[in-house]
Design a protein around this nucleic acid. Structure first.
Length: 295
DNA sequence: CACTTGACCTGTCCGC
DNA sequence: TGCGGACAGGTCAAGT
């Protein structure tokens, strides 16, 4: 999915597109994608205005003037794509076939569209999700912070007050667990997923199976810098698009063309030219340089 | 507590 | 061309 940089890219994009708009109609075709749609949408969504769009970890929060918030998790294949006016575009027509930013989405809605939000000016926001793991939930705004997820999620790695020391303290909550699993654990640090875990571990020359307690302070400090570097770079590049991810305008992100190890198995390590290998760590496909990241 | 596996789903790719 | 299996960026729950 969408990890922190992808969700952040969607957030900034959507903020420019839908803030101030009034919701006129909502439709969904898969109950699990919008579990409490039936009971509350008519009362608290229709007629409400979009006030603000926030992000916490990989979750997007769309605050409405009704004092309700749409809480959205894109999971593996979710997209939030805004379309102005008529949706009648074809893939080629919309961004130009072969264009580096050419779209992964064609006419909308399509077979992956789970929820459609239509605004009073006729524009539409589509929540597409091929694998149906993602969801939209309607929550009273003042209750958002007491959601279990919000109570247990770790700190934002890019926050100004998230220091080296804070990073080390968080990791050391799980001393006997391998560093890759800990980076992926949302209750330790928010927003890191499989792509950016592999990328930062390569940057810090750390083998993903290393137990946290076996990492030197020096290594942890380097990892801290790498995590922030990689996440910031990915935001700058509009995120990573492997197959599904697109931003709020339906365009791909370009980080993967800058990736050093992720999805580069069989290719030379950019640092030492050793062939990058793919293994399994913490139940996830894991990319490493066997020379730079010796166990 | 740490780690693995299976679920949740659909689609794609790879080998036979 | 078809078919079965593995695998995919995320999280849960349940089992060892």
């Amino acid at each position: 999915m969408p990890e922190l940089p992808e969700v952040e890219t969607v957030r900034t994009g959507l903020s420019q597109l839908i803030i101030g708009k009034v919701i006129a109609r909502v439709a969904h075709d898969w109950d699990k994608s919008f579990p409490n749609a039936k009971t509350d949408v008519n009362k608290f969504v229709i007629g409400a205005q979009v006030i603000e769009i926030r992000r916490r970890a990989k979750v997007l929060l769309i605050d409405l003037s009704s004092n309700y918030t749409l809480v959205i998790h894109l999971k593996m294949t979710g997209q939030l794509v805004y379309v102005q006016g008529s949706t009648l575009y074809s893939k080629g027509e919309r961004f130009g076939a072969g264009h580096p930013n050419d779209s992964l989405v064609g006419d909308l809605p399509d077979k992956s569209t789970r929820v459609t939000i239509e605004f009073s000016d006729g524009s539409q926001l589509f929540f597409n999700d091929q694998r149906k793991f993602g969801w939209v939930k309607l929550v009273e705004s003042h209750n958002v912070q007491s959601l279990k997820f919000m109570m247990t999620v770790g700190p934002e790695p890019l926050d100004a007050d998230f220091t080296q020391i804070a990073f080390r303290k968080r990791l050391l909550r799980r001393p006997n667990t391998n560093i890759k699993a800990v980076l992926l654990d949302q209750t330790v640090i928010a927003g890191i997923g499989n792509i950016y875990a592999d990328e930062s571990l390569w940057g810090a020359k750390i083998n993903p199976t290393t137990l946290v307690k076996d990492l030197s302070v020096q290594k942890i400090n380097t990892l801290y810098a790498e995590v922030r570097y990689v996440l910031n770079l990915a935001i700058e590049k509009g995120g990573s698009s492997d197959r599904n991810y697109v931003n709020a305008e339906g365009k791909k992100g370009s980080y993967l063309s800058f990736a050093r190890v992720f999805r580069r198995e069989g290719q030379p390590c950019p640092r030492c030219s050793t062939i990058i290998i793919k293994t399994r760590v913490a139940g996830r496909g894991t990319h490493t340089c066997p020379k730079c990241q010796k166990p």
